[in-house]
Nucleic acid binder design. Structure first.
Lengths: 176, 176
DNA sequence: TACTACATTTAGTAATTACTAAACGTAGTA
DNA sequence: TACTACGTTTAGTAATTACTAAATGTAGTA
């Protein structure tokens, strides 16, 4: 039995929805990206609505966050008031912008929290058992070093392109 | 005004809870890890309950997933039926096991979905417009290559240790 | 064997997040 | 100016996820 193209597309959209959810994004976001990715030409919002089954409101908001992440691009045609959307096809570009996006988020706020805690301990202004303070200082310091390592790794990855990523795996294997 | 140690600990726990949520884990998990990380000795489940304000049931299940991820370790003392928990302090070890954990998850299932879709297209068994099939094949292929790159990158990182991670950032900068 | 001190499971609730429907805003056209 | 064709916002609902309370299971001790 030969499967229909439309079924193939639906399967793919389903897969991307799951992947989206797995990474903590709404599954609708994955679906929207999928239909855009499978479209040879930019399509207007209403068509996304038709293809995904979501409402205009949902598509409107999620397509915006996709655009902010650099995963889709919005464009418009002269003499046509519709907005048209298309998927970014260079994933290495996308990854970079997603990482950037994440860097100035709640995550960073939390990291600053840890840093500030450590500063308080280091400043000696904290009252309490000396041995315990020493212990806490060591633990927090270790955690902070780890965060810093991740941070510089992230920054390095942000600068990578396709060639870079595929080489890194090889290099890491050599390192080991 | 000199802050109290207990306040410092609460702040830290709060920060880790947020970080936990940011990465798609329950905030309770972050809190549990935090109190274990700040404890100089392994502590029993009931004490975690007291320090986090969660119930026994919640701590029981979340501590188990933390253990599966390798972020905490369970131990028991002879002649004592309590289980004791302590935090893994080598984060590089933890990262490895988290990545491993994620590799055989829903995510992988979804990736297989994409692969299978592509195989169907390649096998020529799909009926539909030839030009469109060709287009879809190209797009899916590009996506799959990307996934493969990420996959081998992940595998490489799994093999890394502390030294490795801190070097990688430097190396990546040279690459660029 | 029954009791005690613990951990786990389960069934239900609270909180959060994704989404819908519909009102609203706006830019272009007549 | 009013109308039309679109996008956005908002207020509420559905679905999901995190959590609680309490029943159940279990290993060790008397």
């Amino acid at each position: 039995m030969t499967p229909k193209l439309s079924q193939i597309k639906k399967d793919f959209t389903e897969s991307l929805s799951q992947i989206s959810r797995f990474w903590g994004f709404p599954k609708g976001m994955g679906a929207i990206f999928a239909v855009l990715y499978l479209s040879p030409a930019p399509i207007p919002l209403d068509e996304i609505v038709g293809l995904t089954g979501l409402t205009k409101g949902a598509v409107s908001t999620e397509v915006r966050t996709l655009a902010r992440m650099g995963l889709v691009h919005r464009s418009s045609k002269l003499g046509d008031r519709k907005d048209y959307y298309e998927a970014e096809t260079d994933f290495y570009t996308s990854i970079r912008s997603i990482l950037k996006e994440r860097q100035n988020s709640e995550f960073d706020r939390a990291l600053r929290g840890v840093r500030e805690t450590l500063e308080k301990l280091d400043s000696g202004s904290v009252s309490g058992d000396e041995a315990e303070i020493k212990f806490l200082r060591e633990r927090l310091k270790a955690l902070q070093e780890f965060f810093n390592a991740i941070d510089s790794l992230t920054n390095a990855v942000i600068k990578l392109d396709k060639l870079g990523i595929s080489n890194v795996a090889k290099i890491l294997n050599v390192l080991k």
